[in-house]
Design a protein around this nucleic acid. Structure first.
Length: 458
RNA sequence: GGAGCGGUGUCCGAGCGGUCUAAGGAGGCGGUCUUGAAAACCGCUGUGCCGAAAGGCACCGAGGGUUCGAAUCCCUCCUGCUCCGCCA
């Protein structure tokens, strides 16, 4: 069976069609919400699509699925005839009979070729349409269109008060000579940055602080590749192509710069059947994250908040379906612990249906207080999603259940520390009147200093 | 990047156009025997799709081709190992 390659893929960003086709074939038939589920739960699926303000045609998927099955059944019948025909010719038989059988075989060959062509077309169309259908949303997730419809469910600490006019991290970073945006713009472009002096140490401290917490919780630590294959990105639920894509593609390679280690950690067990007794698998990965942020220019993207490259510690879990709600809760609590431990005020938000993203069943964001952001504002610092079996289907990750059947695992991810936004939170919340930054106590052992002040030239 | 040799079931490994419904081992599960164990013997032991089921189809790295019929022949690609080149 042949798969039609991505017709929408711009030539400059794709590998040879043959290559892409071969890679996709490995995940053939898995890149979607279960067809049968769509067909059998049509109304619920349609409501879910509407709640999420997405465009997908569930009716079309259902009808294509039925048509495809009809064709496949017909095809199987013809194939059986072909096999029987070939079997009939195994031994010594009369020449006349053999001639007759060969003629029949030739006719069957043509019929089969036609049916196969039809099946391929249906399969490709079904795949294309089914790919657009998002995961079902948690019944408890707030229904709404934009981030303003998200529901605040918890607050830890209160917005930091200052006896002076606080500065933003851009100004502080430049005055302390720990972040350099201007040179990065000249060398690499806008939305890049150099960290410098204690800024370098602070970033590494944030990474190590997060890793130590995760290690204690039994996570397996990784540094992951910063590059991943297109089909892995697709499997995780990213769209690596098109003008609106947030992903950088590597020309001619069929690979992309990862936007998060969720991609490489989620791809780690792609195509595997996991041992039930090993679940849940808790992974933590350090990687660089690359995002195009096309069309995200303007004052709201000033500084480190929205950048093309940052370092992140990501958590990832593979678990049994019945455990995923519980694991999701655990991931959120770890995120809370990390930010509570730093003494940074934050709130927890239950993300609304329209803001979930296609793979997520439910998502919680932690928003830290950022005193320098528009005069003080909550800004997203972490996010944890339960993607249930959506990614597992696309990447073919299963476990062997007690009944002997292979079933899809549930996959979850969460941010432990996005360094760029972590830096903003620390720098802005811990700034002092004299322009120095007092380090949170938890970071002092990792930094080796308790205050960031400008290094004077000797 | 160049050359040579490979990729078969959980693993090892045979297979060179129809007897492959994939030999033979190993491992695993169940059973017989035994006080218990070992040994021996017998049976079972991959995945996906369609189907209520019976059953059917597909899969020998991937894709395409030749053929009435392909694990087996041809082409392309991927991947592993060895040697050479380059390199932190």
């Amino acid at each position: 069976m042949r798969i039609l390659p991505f017709s929408t893929c711009p030539p400059s960003t794709r590998a040879s069609p043959v290559l892409v086709e071969q890679r996709l074939a490995r995940y053939y038939g898995r890149t979607m919400l279960d067809h049968k589920f769509v067909r059998d739960n049509l109304e619920a699926v349609k409501k879910n699509i509407a709640d999420r303000y997405m465009k997908a045609d569930a009716d079309l998927v259902a009808s294509l699925y039925d048509k495809r099955n009809e064709t496949l059944t017909a095809l199987d019948e013809q194939r059986k005839k072909r096999n029987d025909n070939a079997a009939a010719m195994k031994g010594k038989i009369e020449a006349a009979i053999r001639e007759k059988l060969i003629a029949e075989g030739k006719a069957l060959k043509e019929t089969i070729a036609e049916l196969e062509k039809g099946a391929e077309e249906l399969e490709a169309r079904l795949l294309e349409e089914a790919r657009k259908i998002p995961n079902m949303a948690h019944p408890g997730a707030p229904v709404g269109k934009e981030d303003k419809d998200n529901l605040e469910v918890k607050r830890v600490g209160e917005p930091t008060k200052f006896d002076f006019q606080p500065k933003d991290h851009v100004q502080l970073g430049q005055e302390l000579d720990i972040i350099d945006f201007d040179t990065a713009t000249r060398v690499s472009g806008t939305k890049f940055y150099y960290l410098k002096n204690q800024g370098v140490i602070l970033e590494l401290a944030l990474v190590r602080y997060a890793l130590d917490i995760l290690m204690k919780k039994g996570f397996t630590l990784f540094t992951t590749p910063d590059v991943a294959k297109t089909e892995i990105l697709e499997g995780i639920g990213f769209n690596p192509r098109g003008a609106e894509s947030n992903i950088y593609s590597i020309e001619g390679e069929g690979t992309c710069l990862i936007g998060t280690a969720e991609i490489t950690l989620g791809g780690y067990y792609s195509g595997s059947v996991l041992d039930k007794k090993d679940l849940p698998l808790m992974l933590a990965g350090v990687s660089h994250c690359f995002r195009r942020e096309a069309g995200a220019a303007g004052q709201f993207s000033k500084g480190l908040y929205r950048v093309h490259q940052f370092t992140k510690v990501e958590m990832f879990a593979y678990c049994l379906p019945e455990d995923s709600d519980k694991i999701h809760e655990q991931l959120r609590l770890i995120e809370e612990e990390i930010f509570s431990g730093l003494g940074i005020p934050f709130r927890v938000v239950d993300t609304c249906t329209g803001d979930l993203g296609a793979p997520a069943y439910r998502k919680w964001d932690l928003e830290a207080w950022m005193p320098g952001r528009n005069g003080g504002e909550w800004g997203e610092v972490t996010s944890t999603s339960n993607c249930t079996d959506f990614q597992a289907r696309r990447l073919n990750v299963k476990f062997k259940d007690d009944d002997g059947k292979n079933k899809y695992v549930h996959m979850l991810n969460g941010t432990a520390m996005a360094c760029s936004r972590g830096l903003i939170s620390v720098i802005e919340n811990f700034q002092q009147e004299d322009g120095t930054i007092k380090m949170p106590a938890a970071l002092v052992p990792y930094c080796g200093f308790d205050t960031i002040r400008k290094i004077e030239k000797k």
